[in-house]
Write a protein that binds this DNA or RNA. Structure first.
Lengths: 143, 143
DNA sequence: GGCATAAGCTGAGCATACTCACTATGTGCT
DNA sequence: AGCACATAGTGAGTATGCTCAGCTTATGCC
Protein backbone atom coordinates (compact mmCIF):
# COMPACT_ATOMS: atom_id res chain seq x y z
CA UNK A 1 0.00 0.00 0.00
CA UNK A 2 2.80 2.33 0.84
CA UNK A 3 4.47 1.47 -2.44
CA UNK A 4 1.36 1.84 -4.53
CA UNK A 5 0.49 5.07 -2.79
CA UNK A 6 3.85 6.58 -3.51
CA UNK A 7 2.67 8.59 -6.52
CA UNK A 8 -0.67 9.63 -5.10
CA UNK A 9 0.65 12.74 -3.49
CA UNK A 10 3.41 13.54 -5.91
CA UNK A 11 1.57 16.41 -7.50
CA UNK A 12 0.79 17.84 -4.08
CA UNK A 13 4.43 17.69 -3.10
CA UNK A 14 5.49 19.27 -6.35
CA UNK A 15 2.86 21.93 -5.89
CA UNK A 16 3.79 22.66 -2.29
CA UNK A 17 7.50 22.66 -3.03
CA UNK A 18 7.03 25.16 -5.83
CA UNK A 19 4.80 27.36 -3.70
CA UNK A 20 7.25 27.40 -0.86
CA UNK A 21 10.28 27.90 -3.05
CA UNK A 22 8.55 30.75 -4.84
CA UNK A 23 7.66 32.46 -1.58
CA UNK A 24 11.16 31.91 -0.30
CA UNK A 25 12.78 33.44 -3.36
CA UNK A 26 10.20 36.22 -3.70
CA UNK A 27 10.79 37.34 -0.16
CA UNK A 28 14.38 38.04 -1.17
CA UNK A 29 13.56 39.45 -4.60
CA UNK A 30 10.96 41.89 -3.30
CA UNK A 31 13.47 44.43 -2.05
CA UNK A 32 14.99 44.53 -5.51
CA UNK A 33 11.62 45.31 -7.05
CA UNK A 34 11.41 41.91 -8.67
CA UNK A 35 9.55 38.62 -8.31
CA UNK A 36 9.94 35.19 -9.83
CA UNK A 37 7.65 35.96 -12.76
CA UNK A 38 9.10 39.42 -13.33
CA UNK A 39 12.66 38.16 -13.13
CA UNK A 40 11.85 35.48 -15.63
CA UNK A 41 10.62 38.08 -18.10
CA UNK A 42 13.64 40.31 -17.47
CA UNK A 43 15.91 37.32 -17.97
CA UNK A 44 14.34 36.42 -21.32
CA UNK A 45 14.71 39.99 -22.53
CA UNK A 46 18.30 40.25 -21.28
CA UNK A 47 19.39 37.00 -22.85
CA UNK A 48 17.68 37.41 -26.21
CA UNK A 49 19.90 38.67 -28.97
CA UNK A 50 16.94 40.14 -30.79
CA UNK A 51 14.23 42.36 -29.33
CA UNK A 52 11.31 40.13 -28.40
CA UNK A 53 7.64 40.41 -29.23
CA UNK A 54 5.05 39.77 -26.56
CA UNK A 55 4.40 36.43 -28.18
CA UNK A 56 8.06 35.43 -28.12
CA UNK A 57 8.18 36.24 -24.44
CA UNK A 58 5.12 34.21 -23.54
CA UNK A 59 6.33 31.26 -25.60
CA UNK A 60 9.80 31.34 -24.08
CA UNK A 61 8.44 31.67 -20.56
CA UNK A 62 5.85 28.96 -21.12
CA UNK A 63 2.96 31.17 -20.04
CA UNK A 64 -0.24 32.35 -21.70
CA UNK A 65 -0.03 35.44 -23.89
CA UNK A 66 -2.45 37.25 -21.60
CA UNK A 67 -0.24 36.56 -18.60
CA UNK A 68 2.74 38.06 -20.41
CA UNK A 69 0.67 41.18 -21.02
CA UNK A 70 0.05 41.50 -17.29
CA UNK A 71 3.73 41.01 -16.41
CA UNK A 72 4.92 43.49 -19.02
CA UNK A 73 2.26 45.97 -17.87
CA UNK A 74 3.72 45.91 -14.39
CA UNK A 75 7.31 46.09 -15.62
CA UNK A 76 6.43 49.01 -17.86
CA UNK A 77 4.60 50.77 -15.05
CA UNK A 78 7.79 50.50 -13.00
CA UNK A 79 9.92 51.77 -15.86
CA UNK A 80 11.89 48.55 -16.37
CA UNK A 81 10.65 47.72 -19.86
CA UNK A 82 9.38 49.68 -22.86
CA UNK A 83 6.96 48.64 -25.58
CA UNK A 84 7.96 49.90 -29.02
CA UNK A 85 5.82 49.38 -32.09
CA UNK A 86 7.23 46.78 -34.44
CA UNK A 87 8.38 48.65 -37.55
CA UNK A 88 7.13 46.00 -39.98
CA UNK A 89 4.18 44.46 -38.13
CA UNK A 90 1.83 47.04 -36.73
CA UNK A 91 0.02 44.48 -34.61
CA UNK A 92 3.12 43.70 -32.59
CA UNK A 93 5.33 45.38 -30.02
CA UNK A 94 9.03 44.97 -29.50
CA UNK A 95 10.12 44.87 -25.88
CA UNK A 96 13.17 46.73 -24.71
CA UNK A 97 14.83 46.78 -21.31
CA UNK A 98 15.42 50.27 -19.96
CA UNK A 99 18.65 51.12 -18.15
CA UNK A 100 16.73 50.73 -14.94
CA UNK A 101 15.48 47.35 -16.20
CA UNK A 102 19.02 46.21 -16.94
CA UNK A 103 20.13 47.21 -13.45
CA UNK A 104 17.13 45.58 -11.82
CA UNK A 105 17.75 42.39 -13.76
CA UNK A 106 21.39 42.25 -12.79
CA UNK A 107 20.66 42.71 -9.10
CA UNK A 108 17.69 40.37 -9.07
CA UNK A 109 19.64 37.68 -10.87
CA UNK A 110 22.28 37.75 -8.17
CA UNK A 111 19.73 37.63 -5.37
CA UNK A 112 17.98 34.78 -7.13
CA UNK A 113 21.20 32.85 -7.52
CA UNK A 114 21.96 33.14 -3.82
CA UNK A 115 18.45 32.27 -2.72
CA UNK A 116 18.34 29.28 -5.00
CA UNK A 117 21.74 28.10 -3.77
CA UNK A 118 20.41 28.34 -0.23
CA UNK A 119 17.24 26.45 -1.05
CA UNK A 120 19.13 23.69 -2.82
CA UNK A 121 21.95 23.48 -0.31
CA UNK A 122 21.05 19.87 0.41
CA UNK A 123 21.44 18.91 -3.23
CA UNK A 124 24.78 18.34 -4.88
CA UNK A 125 25.40 18.90 -8.57
CA UNK A 126 24.35 15.37 -9.46
CA UNK A 127 21.11 15.74 -7.49
CA UNK A 128 20.25 18.94 -9.29
CA UNK A 129 20.94 17.38 -12.63
CA UNK A 130 18.80 14.40 -11.68
CA UNK A 131 15.99 16.68 -10.58
CA UNK A 132 16.10 18.59 -13.84
CA UNK A 133 15.99 15.35 -15.78
CA UNK A 134 12.97 14.10 -13.88
CA UNK A 135 11.15 17.40 -14.28
CA UNK A 136 11.86 17.43 -18.01
CA UNK A 137 10.39 13.96 -18.33
CA UNK A 138 7.18 15.14 -16.68
CA UNK A 139 7.01 18.18 -18.93
CA UNK A 140 7.34 15.98 -21.98
CA UNK A 141 4.16 14.17 -20.96
CA UNK A 142 2.02 17.19 -20.20
CA UNK A 143 1.82 18.93 -23.53
CA UNK B 1 30.10 27.28 -17.56
CA UNK B 2 27.53 24.66 -18.36
CA UNK B 3 28.16 23.00 -15.03
CA UNK B 4 28.04 26.17 -12.99
CA UNK B 5 24.91 27.28 -14.80
CA UNK B 6 23.09 24.06 -14.06
CA UNK B 7 21.16 25.44 -11.10
CA UNK B 8 20.43 28.85 -12.55
CA UNK B 9 17.26 27.79 -14.25
CA UNK B 10 16.18 25.13 -11.80
CA UNK B 11 13.48 27.27 -10.26
CA UNK B 12 12.17 28.17 -13.69
CA UNK B 13 11.98 24.53 -14.67
CA UNK B 14 10.29 23.62 -11.41
CA UNK B 15 7.90 26.50 -11.91
CA UNK B 16 7.09 25.62 -15.48
CA UNK B 17 6.74 21.93 -14.74
CA UNK B 18 4.29 22.64 -11.94
CA UNK B 19 2.32 25.07 -14.09
CA UNK B 20 2.03 22.61 -16.92
CA UNK B 21 1.25 19.66 -14.70
CA UNK B 22 -1.39 21.66 -12.91
CA UNK B 23 -3.05 22.71 -16.14
CA UNK B 24 -2.84 19.16 -17.42
CA UNK B 25 -4.51 17.70 -14.36
CA UNK B 26 -7.02 20.53 -14.00
CA UNK B 27 -8.20 20.05 -17.54
CA UNK B 28 -9.25 16.56 -16.53
CA UNK B 29 -10.57 17.50 -13.10
CA UNK B 30 -12.74 20.32 -14.40
CA UNK B 31 -15.51 18.08 -15.65
CA UNK B 32 -15.76 16.58 -12.19
CA UNK B 33 -16.22 20.02 -10.64
CA UNK B 34 -12.82 19.89 -9.01
CA UNK B 35 -9.36 21.40 -9.37
CA UNK B 36 -6.00 20.67 -7.84
CA UNK B 37 -6.54 23.02 -4.92
CA UNK B 38 -10.12 21.92 -4.35
CA UNK B 39 -9.22 18.24 -4.55
CA UNK B 40 -6.47 18.79 -2.05
CA UNK B 41 -8.94 20.27 0.42
CA UNK B 42 -11.45 17.49 -0.21
CA UNK B 43 -8.71 14.93 0.31
CA UNK B 44 -7.67 16.39 3.65
CA UNK B 45 -11.24 16.37 4.85
CA UNK B 46 -11.85 12.84 3.60
CA UNK B 47 -8.72 11.43 5.17
CA UNK B 48 -8.95 13.16 8.53
CA UNK B 49 -10.43 11.08 11.28
CA UNK B 50 -11.59 14.17 13.11
CA UNK B 51 -13.54 17.08 11.66
CA UNK B 52 -11.03 19.77 10.74
CA UNK B 53 -10.94 23.44 11.58
CA UNK B 54 -10.06 25.97 8.90
CA UNK B 55 -6.67 26.27 10.50
CA UNK B 56 -6.05 22.53 10.44
CA UNK B 57 -6.87 22.50 6.77
CA UNK B 58 -4.54 25.34 5.85
CA UNK B 59 -1.73 23.83 7.91
CA UNK B 60 -2.15 20.39 6.39
CA UNK B 61 -2.36 21.78 2.87
CA UNK B 62 0.61 24.07 3.41
CA UNK B 63 -1.30 27.17 2.33
CA UNK B 64 -2.12 30.48 4.01
CA UNK B 65 -5.21 30.58 6.21
CA UNK B 66 -6.76 33.19 3.94
CA UNK B 67 -6.35 30.93 0.92
CA UNK B 68 -8.13 28.11 2.73
CA UNK B 69 -11.03 30.47 3.37
CA UNK B 70 -11.31 31.13 -0.38
CA UNK B 71 -11.18 27.43 -1.25
CA UNK B 72 -13.76 26.47 1.37
CA UNK B 73 -15.97 29.37 0.23
CA UNK B 74 -16.05 27.92 -3.25
CA UNK B 75 -16.58 24.36 -2.04
CA UNK B 76 -19.40 25.51 0.21
CA UNK B 77 -20.98 27.51 -2.60
CA UNK B 78 -21.03 24.32 -4.66
CA UNK B 79 -22.49 22.30 -1.78
CA UNK B 80 -19.48 20.04 -1.29
CA UNK B 81 -18.52 21.17 2.21
CA UNK B 82 -20.36 22.62 5.20
CA UNK B 83 -19.07 24.93 7.93
CA UNK B 84 -20.42 24.06 11.37
CA UNK B 85 -19.70 26.14 14.45
CA UNK B 86 -17.27 24.47 16.82
CA UNK B 87 -19.24 23.49 19.92
CA UNK B 88 -16.47 24.47 22.35
CA UNK B 89 -14.63 27.24 20.50
CA UNK B 90 -16.95 29.87 19.13
CA UNK B 91 -14.24 31.41 17.00
CA UNK B 92 -13.79 28.25 14.97
CA UNK B 93 -15.67 26.22 12.39
CA UNK B 94 -15.61 22.51 11.84
CA UNK B 95 -15.63 21.42 8.22
CA UNK B 96 -17.79 18.54 7.06
CA UNK B 97 -18.01 16.91 3.64
CA UNK B 98 -21.56 16.68 2.30
CA UNK B 99 -22.70 13.54 0.49
CA UNK B 100 -22.11 15.42 -2.74
CA UNK B 101 -18.67 16.32 -1.46
CA UNK B 102 -17.85 12.70 -0.75
CA UNK B 103 -18.94 11.68 -4.23
CA UNK B 104 -17.03 14.53 -5.86
CA UNK B 105 -13.92 13.60 -3.92
CA UNK B 106 -14.13 9.95 -4.91
CA UNK B 107 -14.52 10.73 -8.59
CA UNK B 108 -11.89 13.47 -8.62
CA UNK B 109 -9.41 11.25 -6.82
CA UNK B 110 -9.72 8.62 -9.53
CA UNK B 111 -9.35 11.17 -12.32
CA UNK B 112 -6.35 12.64 -10.56
CA UNK B 113 -4.74 9.25 -10.17
CA UNK B 114 -5.09 8.51 -13.87
CA UNK B 115 -3.89 11.94 -14.99
CA UNK B 116 -0.89 11.75 -12.70
CA UNK B 117 -0.05 8.26 -13.93
CA UNK B 118 -0.15 9.59 -17.47
CA UNK B 119 2.04 12.58 -16.66
CA UNK B 120 4.61 10.45 -14.87
CA UNK B 121 4.56 7.61 -17.40
CA UNK B 122 8.25 8.17 -18.14
CA UNK B 123 9.15 7.71 -14.46
CA UNK B 124 9.43 4.33 -12.81
CA UNK B 125 8.82 3.77 -9.11
CA UNK B 126 12.43 4.51 -8.24
CA UNK B 127 12.36 7.76 -10.22
CA UNK B 128 9.23 8.91 -8.41
CA UNK B 129 10.74 8.09 -5.07
CA UNK B 130 13.89 9.94 -6.04
CA UNK B 131 11.87 12.95 -7.14
CA UNK B 132 9.96 13.01 -3.89
CA UNK B 133 13.19 12.82 -1.92
CA UNK B 134 14.73 15.71 -3.83
CA UNK B 135 11.60 17.84 -3.44
CA UNK B 136 11.51 17.14 0.27
CA UNK B 137 15.09 18.29 0.61
CA UNK B 138 14.23 21.58 -1.04
CA UNK B 139 11.19 22.04 1.18
CA UNK B 140 13.34 21.51 4.25
CA UNK B 141 15.45 24.50 3.25
CA UNK B 142 12.66 26.91 2.44
CA UNK B 143 10.94 27.26 5.79
C1' DG C 1 -8.56 44.20 -55.46
C1' DG C 2 -11.14 41.73 -52.23
C1' DC C 3 -12.55 38.32 -49.02
C1' DA C 4 -11.54 34.58 -45.69
C1' DT C 5 -8.58 33.22 -42.37
C1' DA C 6 -4.76 33.62 -39.18
C1' DA C 7 -2.00 36.09 -35.84
C1' DG C 8 -0.85 39.78 -32.16
C1' DC C 9 -2.44 41.81 -28.36
C1' DT C 10 -5.65 43.17 -24.69
C1' DG C 11 -10.30 43.60 -21.98
C1' DA C 12 -13.20 41.00 -18.94
C1' DG C 13 -13.70 37.70 -15.64
C1' DC C 14 -12.15 33.74 -12.77
C1' DA C 15 -9.00 30.76 -9.55
C1' DT C 16 -5.45 30.38 -6.32
C1' DA C 17 -1.75 32.14 -3.89
C1' DC C 18 0.02 35.98 -0.67
C1' DT C 19 0.13 39.93 3.18
C1' DC C 20 -1.88 43.10 6.35
C1' DA C 21 -5.45 44.66 9.27
C1' DC C 22 -9.51 43.77 11.77
C1' DT C 23 -13.21 41.51 14.75
C1' DA C 24 -14.41 38.13 17.94
C1' DT C 25 -13.20 34.93 21.16
C1' DG C 26 -9.94 32.13 24.38
C1' DT C 27 -6.28 31.87 27.69
C1' DG C 28 -3.33 33.01 31.18
C1' DC C 29 -1.29 35.98 34.78
C1' DT C 30 -1.81 39.00 38.62
C1' DA D 1 -12.24 40.20 38.03
C1' DG D 2 -9.62 42.20 34.69
C1' DC D 3 -6.02 43.20 31.47
C1' DA D 4 -2.65 41.47 28.06
C1' DC D 5 -1.75 38.56 24.69
C1' DA D 6 -2.73 34.74 21.45
C1' DT D 7 -5.67 32.39 18.18
C1' DA D 8 -9.57 31.70 14.52
C1' DG D 9 -11.37 33.44 10.69
C1' DT D 10 -12.27 36.88 7.15
C1' DG D 11 -12.23 41.60 4.42
C1' DA D 12 -9.30 44.30 1.45
C1' DG D 13 -5.92 44.51 -1.86
C1' DT D 14 -2.22 42.49 -4.96
C1' DA D 15 0.20 39.10 -8.05
C1' DT D 16 0.26 35.50 -11.30
C1' DG D 17 -1.79 32.08 -13.78
C1' DC D 18 -5.94 30.79 -17.01
C1' DT D 19 -9.89 31.12 -20.87
C1' DC D 20 -12.84 33.43 -24.01
C1' DA D 21 -14.16 37.28 -26.78
C1' DG D 22 -12.94 41.03 -29.40
C1' DC D 23 -10.28 44.57 -32.18
C1' DT D 24 -6.62 45.43 -35.35
C1' DT D 25 -3.55 44.06 -38.76
C1' DA D 26 -1.26 40.44 -41.99
C1' DT D 27 -1.46 36.94 -45.25
C1' DG D 28 -2.90 34.04 -48.74
C1' DC D 29 -5.93 32.68 -52.39
C1' DC D 30 -9.15 33.82 -56.19
Amino acid sequence: MAVQGSSDVLIDELYETTNRLRQFVEGRLREKGASVARLRALRMLARARQPLRMRDLSDMAGIAARTATAIVDSLERDGLVERVRHPQDRRAFLLRLTDEGVRCHREAEEVDRLALAEATAALDAADREQLRTLLARIRDHTV
